[in-house]
Every structure is written in structure tokens, then in C-alpha cells.
Design a protein around this nucleic acid. Structure first.
Length: 845
RNA sequence: GCCCUCGUGGUGAAAUUGGUAGACACAAAGGACUUAAAAUCCUUGCCGCUUGCGGAGUGCCAGUUCGAGUCUGGCCGAGGGCACCA
């Protein structure tokens, strides 16, 4: 028997799909559309297993939906701006463009080898002028709408590389490349006004019922809405300032007020800039690391001023004002009213500086002598020690009533505050989308006129310079706009901007004049199913949601504002890690085993290998498996089959060589089975009881449900069941036409997972409508026999089979005659029975 | 510290609405075929005894129910997110 030659057959189908443009999408208003999108890759060199998993999941869905007669849009592109290209260029003396384009070429070939059902005519690359000129145009639109602005802000500044670092690039307070201690530096930067939509972005989450709850919770926390009030505290000092504004969620604890703390960047700090001690303190604060953990664990320190703040509810009470390291300038008003009894942070600070700690919330079942020890009390209770607030119920009543009082007395007003900050989009880098802005000699912002777009990145430039290479391009920087000599902005846009609208571009990616064609968008958007890693739960997904709102802002005739109707976050691909005796990481190809327990360095059985835990594949731990090798040895169908097989797609999956091999064997076995079915010689063509219809229709039903619910690992189990069923029953069949009719349906329902093999098999059968999903014939969803569980006192005691439906009375008679049940029922009275028809009976004795 | 998710054999995992726990695989052990190996196929799977039978059993403890992996409360454990957010 001939073996299944995946190399020839997979190639054959891939070129068939490509030549016939099978996956080309276009508007067809008679059909319901389905936009299936996987997060597009960064072209880093070659594809990795994570891509294989991500795109296999998406492809199964796209193929299934297309067979369900949806008009499917399934595009692919490249998130091709970003630092790795710049770094690689420096190392390899290639310019970023060449490096990137070469990678795209490689990865595109690899993705095609996976047999993905992608409309390649819509391919986009964010680093191409065709793409970024529209992005520049959107930037100007947003500028006109007032959603883009420029302000000075603190950044992580690497003094050695002379560049700004993202938070993720600061490790233990040091630059990830240079190792230099990162400084906080104020720079003029461009911002997108995402906070304008804080409330809307939060509310929008409620509609996203096809999103994982986890992601919605993460976004909700990130937006961080809190309800409270702003209070103007009168201050007594020699300064010309009379009031300090604070935001608080707990105005009801105002009588426990014992200090007021300011950020070192608070406007009032201006009056202290000549105070050596204050400057020293401020520097001290700047030193505490920039990582979240070091901030959280940092000791609370303060700088006492001679300012006093007055308690607005009791003007006889005055408290000291401090500058403190824990107060953030960019939340609230950069000033905090401290109530140590009911806030742990305030309590730590108060203990350190020996400030008064007066409890004003009495927990239930505590007496009025309640005192605070090491922990602040933040729970519910009754207000006390608070004059006219006494007796209010904490938290709801007390907070609302206090705000009412403050508002009537004009001492404050209710306010909703968000944690979300505006999105800083300036990056001091070369390989990104140039910001279409210049500055005239007065330093005023001048827009590059739209007809002059794109602002192209200069090519062949020197990258091996300190700071942003664009700053060194004098001839590029100088530009004349409306006859005025200007200097271009040299910052480029954060690459997250590129990915915030690429899903719109896919709808009309060849439109030269506009970033998107509204008609196309109205048909295709929103993305029905978006699939990608959970690591983008916040930034990318939130920015994309913002971008839809920003583009639609003040615009009539726009579309739904949520870009992604359904979201699926797939798990990672993991592999064991290996270390040699010198603690160096080893890749799986450098390791071998004979008994499956002990591992040795290849060709060196004396060197034992330490096996580490299975972790997500990463180059640094060398625990990667190159998909190219796997595709070469086992073929695309086998890889697709394996990558879906072991774990549910939302969970991490363990790479296993054994599993891969047995997936490969499955493909081979299935092919042999297929040949056997074709060659089957049956003389008598009698119609048998409809057993095979029952199996087939139940299987179609199962697989359909599993597809709908992303239970792709169970579909693989279904595939094994199919194989087992056919190989066991093939010789009991006595009507070949009927066998083939059902087998053909089966081949169709497995084609989303293993499209090459099933298309080849369908071809052998000369199958019609192979791109149509078989309809379940409900008459065959009946059971061929009824297995009824007999429980006695809730315990399973027997299983009785009946060919026909049976009622309780008849069943009880059968039970009485059942030898195996006699010992349980003898001399016992059945007090009660619960019968679930044709399924189960529970006898209580 | 706060928030979210998840705990099922040696392993990865299945299990519509509460209704046969462990589908389907991986690994292991035993067996069949073979001169032998590989491949393939079959059996086993926790505890007890006599082919068979009985018992326990879905992290632990309680509760609801005729019946709980599934629902409720408490505890323990693991993973993830946020982290001085006033």
C-alpha cells in the first residue's frame, strides 16, 4: 500500500487554493459575513510554535464558517515597525527595511506551508508607505478633533543610549541594553487623549459578551474608575496659595484627617525649589526604582513643610502638610488627605512620623473604645468621633451624605476619577511611522499638509549613532511648509498605533486614497472573532477600542465602535527545559534519552542533563522547537492536528515529540483506512439497520458543537473515534454506496482541521459540494438502544439495555427479574424511585 | 495587599440542563505476533479478596438534593493580572 506522501499532496492543494484564489473575499450582501482575524505577527525572522497554534485555531474557524456558507474574511499582515529591526540592522549591517522584508518573505512562505485559508491579496505591512501614509493622515484628523496634543511628561531616560525606554525595558531601574541607571526626564511628547473616552471604554465592556471575562476585568481595573469627591483644603502659610485640592473616595473619614501629603511634583513644590533640603528629598524620591515592585515596597518617606491644612468640617483643627514619595502627580490632583486609621498607606506614614491616629469608623460589634493597631480598618461599620456625621452607616450612606454636606457648604463636589492615563505615542526611534508634524522657527506646531503625505522615512541612514538617528538627518529634517522654513518632528509613533487600526485596513487594503473604505467597513466590521495571546489583553485591545472611538468621534455615519465582537485568547506552547552540568541551557536537539527517564547530552552519555520545568517556549531558555523542521518531517496536517490535540486552546499546551509522532501516524493510518474503504468489495448491496447513519450524524453534531465552543482538542478525540469506528466496522458493512455517502460527510467535517488530507480523500470520492458543511439529519440523533443506569440509594448497581423506550412500570418489573440486582433488593422494600426516562432510575430502599 | 481563574488517574485531558466519572490520547507494565528487534494489536489502570465481586474516589470540610466533578458556604493549594490610584 502506498504511503501518504504529504510533501506532494500538501503542495498540490496549497497551489490549487492559491491559483484558484479560493480564499479571496469580496462583499456579497446575499451572504452573512464572518470576519475572522488572528493577531498579526511581528516579522522577527521565522515563525514559531505560538504562531502555528494561533493561526491553526483561526484557520479551523475560518474554514468551518466558510463551509457554513458565511462570507469569510480571513486576512494576514505584518506588524513590521519596531525596535528589533533597528537592533538587528545595527548588528548585521543591513538596513531595517531590507531585514524586515526578507523576514516577511520567509514567514509568508512558512505560513503558506501550513495551509492557511488566507486571502493573501489583502496582505498589509505596517512599515510600507502604503500603510503608514494613512496612519499619518489619521494622526492629523485626530489632531483636528483635539484628540492629539503635546505636553511635557516624565519618561524613562537611558543616559547612555540617549533614548526613551518603555516601562517594560526598564529592569530593576536599569536600561535593558545599556545597564545604565534610568533617569526620570521631562520631555515634550505627543499624546492621544484616550482618557476622553474613559467612561465609554469602561461601559463598552458590558456589551462584549463574547470576550473572556478575565480580559474584561483586566481592562476594567486598568481604566480604574473610582467614585468620590474633590475637596478644597484651606491652607495656612506664607505662600500666595490659599487652597489645595484633593481627590478622595472616603470623604466620610474626614474627621480622622491627620496630615496632607503632596507629590514632589505638585505645583506648590515650585516654592521649595531653592530649599536645599527639599531638593535633596526630591532627588531621594527619584532614586527609588521605577519598577512597580520596588515602588510598592519602598519605604514611605516625607518632607515636612511649615504649611498647615485646615479640616473643612471642623475649622478648629489643623494638620501638617508633607511632601511624600507615595503621592503620584498624575492621579487625582497630586495631593492626598491622610486618614491613617482607615488607610494602610496613611497609617504606615503616620506611624513613621508619629502623627495622630483617630478612628472614625467603628466596626460592627466593637465598642467606642475601638483603637487602631497595626492594620488600618477599611471595612464597614458606623461613623463615630465625627460630630454631626456620627451614626452614619459605612460605606454607602456615609460617603453619599458627607459629599452632600460638602457640596451644600461649597467645600467640595462629587467626582469620578479614572486611573487610565493618556497614551504617550512619541518614540525616539528610527524604525517607526514618522509623526506628520514640523515646527516653525518660533517653535509652533505646523501640520504637514495631507497632500504632502506620506512623510517618508529616509533610507540608507546611519543607525550607529547615539539617540534617535532621525535627529542626525539634517537634510530630512529641514522642510518648507507654506513657504515657511520648518524642522520636522523626529519622534516616530509607538508601534501600538500601527496595530490599532490594521483590522480596518484589511477591509479595503488596496485602496490607495483612503485608509479605509467606509462601505467595505460597514459590511465587514466588526471582527467577528479575534484570536491572539492574552498578553495583549490591555494595551493593544484597549488602544484599538480607543481608535475606533477616536476615528468615529464627531463623525456622523460611522460604524459600531467596538472593533472586536468576539475575542479568544489562546494559551502558550510549552516545552521542558534542559541544563547541562555547567548550568547552560540546552536545546531539545542537544539532548537525548534512552529510557525516557534519564537524559544525556547527545553523543555524550556520560553527561547527565538536568530537566527543568516545562515553560513557554523562548529563545533565551532554548526550549524551542522550530516549526519548519516539524513541517518538513511530518507535514502541515500532522502539525495542525497535534497543536490542537492535547489541551483546550485557551490553556497552555505541552509540546511532546511522542504526541507529534502519533499525530503523524494518525494521518498515515487514516490514509490507509481511506484506501481500504475505496478498495472495499461488497457483493450484497443490502441496506442494513442505519447504524452508520447514526454514527455519522451524531459525529457531525458533536463536531459542530465542539467547533462552536472552541473545544478543538475534543475534535481531535472525535477524529480518533471516527478512525476507530470505521476501522472496526468496515467489514460489517454490506452497502458500499451507503458507506461512502456517510464517509464523505465525515471527510467534510474533519476538513477544517486537516484540510490537505481530507480534500485529497474527497477528491478520490469525486465528492460534490465539498465546501458545504453537512447538515445533521435529526432522525439519526436517536439512540439505537437505551442503556439505563440502575441506581440503588444513589449508587450505580447495574446497566440494563433496551431496544425500545420503556416506562417506569415495565422497568421495575425488569429490575425485579434481574439476577444481578437480587442481592441488593431481596427482602427490601422500595420506598421511592426516581426515573429519568430512558436514562436512569434511582431506587431508594 | 487587592482582583480574576483553576484544582479530575503516572501525564495531557473528556463529561449539554445536576443523572454511567475518567471519552480520546501520551507514558508505563504484562501479553500476542516475530529467531530477535522495530512496527502493530490486546489487556491492565486506586484499595481489598477467590475468573468475578465489593469498596473508596473529581484538593479538603460541611450543606442543598433521590442523586453533586457540576450548585451554595468555609478552608487549603496553584497560576495569572494589578500594585503606594488617595
Amino acid at each position: 500500500m502506498d504511503r501518504y506522501n504529504f510533501k506532494i499532496i500538501e503542495k498540490k492543494w496549497q497551489s490549487y487554493w492559491e491559483k484558484k484564489k479560493i480564499f479571496k473575499a469580496s462583499i456579497d450582501k446575499k451572504k452573512q459575513k464572518f470576519y475572522c482575524l488572528e493577531m498579526f505577527p511581528y516579522p522577527s525572522g521565522k515563525i514559531h510554535m505560538g504562531h502555528v497554534r494561533n493561526y491553526t485555531i483561526g484557520d479551523v474557524l475560518a474554514r468551518y464558517k466558510s463551509m457554513q456558507n458565511y462570507n469569510v474574511l480571513h486576512p494576514m499582515g505584518w506588524d513590521s515597525f519596531g525596535m528589533p529591526a533597528e537592533n538587528a540592522a545595527k548588528q548585521n549591517k543591513l538596513d531595517p527595511k531590507t531585514w524586515t522584508e526578507k523576514n516577511i518573505e520567509t514567514m509568508k512562505t512558512q505560513l503558506k506551508q501550513l495551509g492557511l485559508s488566507i486571502d493573501w491579496d489583502r496582505e498589509i505591512s505596517t512599515c510600507s508607505e502604503d500603510y503608514y501614509k494613512h496612519q499619518q493622515s489619521f494622526f492629523l484628523d485626530l489632531f483636528d478633533k483635539g484628540l492629539v496634543y503635546r505636553k511635557e511628561n516624565y519618561v524613562n531616560w537611558d543616559p547612555v543610549d540617549e533614548t526613551v525606554l518603555a516601562n517594560e525595558q526598564v529592569i530593576d531601574g536599569k536600561g535593558w541594553r545599556s545597564g545604565a541607571v534610568v533617569e526620570r526626564k521631562k520631555l515634550n511628547q505627543w499624546f492621544f487623549n484616550i482618557t476622553k473616552f474613559s467612561s465609554d471604554l469602561l461601559d463598552g465592556l458590558n456589551q462584549l459578551d463574547k470576550w473572556p471575562n478575565k480580559v474584561k476585568v483586566m481592562q476594567k481595573n486598568w481604566i480604574g474608575k473610582s467614585f468620590g469627591c474633590e475637596i478644597d483644603f484651606k491652607i495656612k502659610s506664607k505662600l500666595p496659595v490659599k487652597e489645595i485640592k484633593c481627590f478622595t473616595t472616603r470623604p466620610d473619614t474626614l474627621f480622622g484627617f491627620s496630615f496632607l501629603a503632596l507629590s514632589v511634583d505638585h505645583p506648590i513644590s515650585e516654592y521649595f525649589k531653592n530649599d536645599d533640603k527639599f531638593v535633596k528629598f526630591k532627588n531621594e524620591c527619584a532614586k527609588t526604582g521605577t519598577t512597580e515592585e520596588s515602588i510598592a515596597n519602598a519605604e514611605k518617606i516625607g518632607f515636612k513643610t511649615d504649611i498647615k491644612a485646615v479640616n473643612p468640617l471642623d475649622e478648629t483643627k489643623e494638620v501638617p502638610v508633607y511632601f511624600a514619595n507615595f503621592v503620584l502627580m498624575d492621579y487625582g490632583f497630586g495631593a492626598v488627605f491622610g486618614c491613617p486609621a482607615h488607610d494602610q498607606r496613611d497609617l504606615d506614614f503616620a506611624r513613621k512620623y508619629k502623627l495622630k491616629i483617630l478612628p472614625v469608623v467603628c466596626p460592627p460589634e466593637k465598642s467606642k473604645n475601638f483603637e487602631i493597631d497595626k492594620e488600618a480598618y477599611t471595612g464597614p461599620g458606623i461613623i463615630f468621633n465625627s460630630q454631626f456625621l456620627n451614626g452614619l452607616k459605612v460605606p454607602d450612606e456615609s460617603i453619599i451624605k458627607t459629599i452632600d454636606i460638602l457640596e451644600t457648604k461649597k467645600l467640595g463636589k462629587r467626582k469620578i476619577n479614572f486611573r487610565l492615563k493618556d497614551w504617550g505615542v512619541s518614540r525616539q526611534r528610527y524604525w517607526g511611522c514618522p509623526i506628520p508634524i514640523a515646527y516653525n522657527k518660533n517653535g509652533d506646531v505646523v501640520k504637514i499638509p495631507k497632500e504632502n503625505l506620506p512623510v517618508k522615512l529616509p533610507e540608507n541612514i546611519k543607525l550607529d549613532v547615539k539617540g534617535n538617528p532621525l535627529e542626525h538627518q539634517k537634510d530630512w529634517r529641514e522642510v518648507i511648509i507654506n513657504g515657511e522654513k520648518c524642522i520636522r518632528e523626529t519622534d516616530t509613533l509607538d508601534t501600538f498605533v500601527d496595530s490599532s487600526w490594521y483590522f480596518l485596513r484589511f477591509c479595503s487594503s488596496n485602496n490607495k486614497n483612503n485608509g479605509f473604505d467606509l462601505n467595505e467597513i460597514k459590511y465587514w466590521m466588526p471582527v467577528d472573532q479575534y484570536i491572539g495571546g492574552v498578553e495583549h489583553a490591555i494595551l493593544h485591545l484597549l488602544y484599538s477600542r480607543f481608535f475606533m472611538r477616536a476615528l468615529g468621534h464627531d463623525t456622523k455615519d460611522f460604524i459600531k465602535l467596538e472593533p472586536f465582537e468576539g475575542l479568544f485568547t489562546q494559551g502558550m506552547v510549552c516545552h521542558e527545559t534542559y541544563k547541562d552540568s555547567n548550568n547552560n541551557w540546552l536545546s531539545p536537539d542537544e539532548v537525548e534519552t534512552k529510557d525516557g527517564k534519564n537524559f544525556f547530552k547527545k553523543n555524550n552519555p556520560s553527561e547527565k542533563i538536568k530537566i527543568g520545568p516545562s515553560e513557554s517556549m523562548s529563545k533565551s531558555k532554548k526550549n524551542t522547537i522550530d516549526p519548519q523542521n516539524i513541517i518538513n518531517s511530518y507535514g502541515a496536517d500532522a502539525v495542525r492536528f497535534f497543536i490542537l490535540s492535547d489541551s483546550p486552546p485557551e490553556k497552555d499546551v505541552q509540546w511532546s515529540e511522542q504526541g507529534m509522532i502519533s499525530s503523524f501516524k494518525f494521518i498515515q493510518k487514516f490514509w490507509s483506512l481511506h484506501k481500504m474503504i475505496l478498495d472495499l468489495k461488497i457483493n450484497k448491496n443490502i441496506n442494513q439497520p442505519e447504524k452508520i447513519e447514526i454514527f455519522t450524524n451524531q459525529m457531525i453534531d458533536k463536531i459542530t458543537r465542539n467547533l462552536e465552543n472552541f473545544h478543538y482538542n475534543v475534535i481531535i478525540a472525535n477524529l480518533y473515534e471516527i478512525y476507530n469506528y470505521f476501522s472496526k466496522n468496515i467489514n460489517n458493512v454490506n452497502n458500499k454506496d451507503n458507506l461512502l455517502k456517510n464517509y464523505e460527510k465525515i471527510l467534510k467535517v474533519i476538513s477544517p482541521v486537516i484540510p490537505h488530507l481530507s480534500n485529497e480523500c474527497l477528491d478520490d470520492l469525486n465528492a460534490q459540494d465539498r465546501d458545504k458543511w453537512p447538515v445533521v439529519d435529526k432522525q439519526f440523533l436517536i439512540k439505537e438502544k437505551f442503556d439505563i443506569v440502575i441506581q440503588i440509594n444513589g449508587k450505580k448497581r447495574d446497566l440494563m439495555s433496551f431496544t425500545n423506550e420503556i416506562n417506569e412500570k415495565e422497568l421495575l418489573i425488569e429490575i425485579k427479574n434481574n439476577e444481578r440486582l437480587k442481592k441488593f433488593l431481596e427482602s427490601k422494600e422500595i420506598k421511592k424511585s426516581v426515573y429519568i426516562k430512558n436514562k436512569l432510575i434511582n431506587l431508594i430502599i
